[in-house]
């Protein structure tokens, strides 16, 4: 019968129309500003810089200004200037830090390569998506003060990944401390052996060498 296909189709739409009031799986619309979507942990929007504490974000930035992200960024939206001096990083090693770290979020395409390639777990992807600004140049060019977010915030948006990162950094720090301790012990042992060696001989030199104190940096 001509028109039976159309009638069958109308039956389907009628079923969906009625179902959209009663069947939960057919209610697909989210009332966005009132109902906030629950973002998956992997969701990424724009980069952020992780700092250890919220009180002193600039002093505890994990970034060591290695410029890997700047080189690999596909649209070239990251700009970094290295510092002249050094300060200890998350593992206690003396490192440079970024004096200028700016990301032009009007250019950034949220690919996440910077976060993926950062060897210091410093740059991560944020999950903010309401990023309107009133000025399209200064408002979207974020400098390091605006990019820095505390580790606690990072934990709040990506708990699983942040826990992994913290465990890895703690292991690194422990390894570095153990290495430093071992180096210091070896040095002290060498110095002691050196000091002991002349003492065992029949004292050609009356002045015994004082063992050097192990340097803290070793």
């Amino acid at each position: 019968m001509l028109g039976s296909g159309i009638i069958k189709g109308l039956a389907v739409t009628a079923k969906n129309f009625v179902g959209s009031y009663f069947v939960p799986e057919r209610m697909v619309t989210e009332q966005y500003p009132e109902d906030r979507p629950k973002l998956p942990e992997n969701y990424r929007s724009f980069p952020l810089l992780v700092s250890e504490t919220a009180e002193d974000p600039m002093g505890t930035l994990r970034c060591v200004a290695c410029q890997i992200c700047e080189k690999e960024c596909p649209p070239q939206c990251i700009y970094i200037e290295k510092s002249k001096d050094k300060k200890p990083d998350a593992t206690g090693k003396m490192q440079l830090y970024p004096v200028v770290f700016a990301i032009d979020t009007s250019v950034c395409m949220s690919c996440g390569l910077c976060a993926e390639l950062c060897p210091f777990d410093s740059i991560k992807m944020d999950q903010v998506f309401e990023v309107a600004a009133t000025n399209r140049f200064a408002g979207l060019l974020l400098n390091r003060e605006q990019l820095a977010k505390s580790n606690a915030y990072y934990h709040s948006i990506r708990p699983v990944e942040a826990a992994e990162v913290d465990a890895r950094l703690a292991a690194d720090r422990q390894a570095a401390e153990a290495k430093a301790k071992a180096a210091a012990a070896a040095k002290a042992a060498a110095a002691a052996a050196k000091a002991a060696a002349p003492a065992a001989q029949p004292a050609p030199a009356p002045v015994a060498e004082a063992p050097k104190p192990p340097s803290p940096a070793a």
């Binding site: 992997n42 949220s110 690919c111 390569l113």
Partner: peptide, 21 residues
């Protein structure tokens, strides 16, 4: 409606709905 369900899966996996990378 159906596409959105798959795209949500992509988002949960890769972090982005369409630009999966």
């Amino acid at each position: 409606r159906e596409r959105e369900k798959i795209i949500d899966l992509f988002e949960a996996l890769s972090g982005s709905r369409m630009m999966c990378n």
